[in-house]
């Protein structure tokens, strides 16, 4: 089955070009990463892949039936409790209330939320719990493509590591394909099978890296080594220069 195929993608908001001639392919079952500094058009590409935005030029082909987003901000409805928030996507699909809440209950367990958290409203949840609810909401609609828009960048370091391994486990366990957008090279190395580095505005493909090592072998030492090795590549270092100390 075909994965994701982006060819010659260009887009502009008014006179300002955000993406120029971008091509990228991602086989099914892999995690791809768009890595680049803020404002290089990563989120724009993700929106176009998810069908929220029509590309001005170029094509995006994929055979996925159910792409779903997880945003940097959890975007929970403040007036619904956690369980109803998780079930929101199912409501859009017309699933009945009882079935919705049942499935939401199961997913709360999957993402590591306690049953009593289901009745809490977003303002009563911590940042990490809110992001878990957002993740469960995405998984509830049984997606085949996860579009992750910097979903961990608002979390502190410990929580971020926890969420990263949770997402990695879920993607592997459910045989999902995922496209991750981030400006954090270490995060990309920790999670992705292939990394497309984008240059600053307008975003162009600067370098493509593959990371064949299985996830189980990607400990802190490996991530550290790999980050250094990738930064030794002049194109990558130049594209990310604004983000480096």
């Amino acid at each position: 089955m075909p994965g994701l195929e982006i060819r010659g993608l260009s887009h502009a908001f008014g006179p300002q070009g955000v993406i120029e001639d971008l091509s990228f392919s991602l086989p099914r079952g892999e995690i791809g990463c768009l890595l680049g500094p803020s404002g290089c058009g990563k989120t724009t590409v993700l929106s176009m892949v998810g069908g929220l935005l029509a590309p001005a030029e170029g094509t995006i082909d994929h055979g996925f039936r159910h792409p779903v987003f997880v945003f940097q901000d959890p975007c929970l409805l403040p007036w619904r409790d956690a369980r109803d928030n998780i079930a929101f996507g199912l409501k859009a699909m017309g699933v009945g209330r009882r079935q919705r809440l049942e499935r939401a209950g199961r997913l709360m367990e999957v993402v590591g939320l306690a049953p009593e958290d289901g009745a809490k409203f977003p303002h009563e949840l911590s940042g990490g719990m809110r992001q878990r609810v957002a993740l469960a909401r995405a998984l509830a609609v049984e997606p085949d493509l996860l579009l992750l828009d910097e979903p961990f960048s608002a979390l502190d370091v410990g929580l971020r590591r926890q969420m990263q391994s949770l997402v990695r486990r879920l993607i592997a366990g459910r045989n999902l394909t995922a496209l991750l957008v981030t400006h954090d090279l270490a995060e990309a190395v920790r999670l992705a099978d292939r990394i497309l580095v984008l240059s600053p505005s307008p975003g162009r493909a600067a370098a493509l890296h593959r990371i064949p090592e299985p996830f189980a072998e990607r400990d802190d030492g490996f991530v550290h080594c790999m980050v250094n090795r990738l930064l030794a590549d002049p194109a990558t270092a130049e594209a990310l220069a604004v983000e480096l100390p």
């Binding site: 779903v68 945003f71 409805l77 409501k91």
Partner: peptide, 13 residues
């Protein structure tokens, strides 16, 4: 706007 974007991403009626 972000809630609207989220809702649209789930293709809500």
């Amino acid at each position: 706007g972000s809630l609207r974007r989220m809702a649209l991403s789930f293709r809500v009626p």
